[in-house]
Amino acid sequence: MISLRHITIQAGSFNLRDLSMEIPTGSHTALMGRTGSGKTTLLEGICGLRSIRSGSIWIGDREVTNLPPGQRGIGLVPQDGALFDHLTVRQHLEFALEVRGWALERRETRSQELAEWLGLTSLMDRLPAGMSGGERQRVALGRALAFHPPVLCLDEPLSALDDQTRGEIVAVLTEIRNRTGITILHITHNRSEAERLADRILHLRDGRLES
């Protein structure tokens, strides 16, 4: 479970004040709101990429408020994928594992497993340049899931995709949830996308959360 307890985040002149919410383990929660409502700011706060002024953040029974991003157990998939242009798909899938000191054999096994699952086996030695939007998002998902994080944060992962590719990624996200039981927090401004994927929809309005 992700638990936010009375958190306040300041981003320039913009404020999120006294926000509290609980996201049950294994759920897919969509967080909706207009552009500029603070969705991404909140996500950055949860991921540890933006400091919070007060309150606490818990993942399971562990308080992560002051932990660095890499120790929170959160996989992040940004809107544009933010792939590393100098790394191949294989290196993307093994990135977190290498940083975390996994042995080569274990890394290879895990990256192969993810590649087969996400349909990336034929792309393993490719660089991101020239890959389609759907391929890039599948690589970004594989990179985020490689180290078995208990939480997956998605920041509008479908907004830059065409209809057909969006359908593909929706199927991949559904399978990820079914296979791993991971807790998903999914930021979107698309209602049909939220209704199709999420079992809970929250709205961020004027710095406040509403169900």
Partner: peptide
């Protein structure tokens, strides 16, 4: 894109590691 560094940090890098592994190669 600063998101690249941020993603690297969620994957386990500290800021210095994100700089060496992600930013410097991109800045080559």
């Amino acid at each position: 894109n600063p998101r690249q560094e941020q993603v690297a940090m969620t994957l386990g890098c500290n800021r210095a590691q994100a700089f060496w592994r992600v930013v410097l190669p991109a800045a080559r």
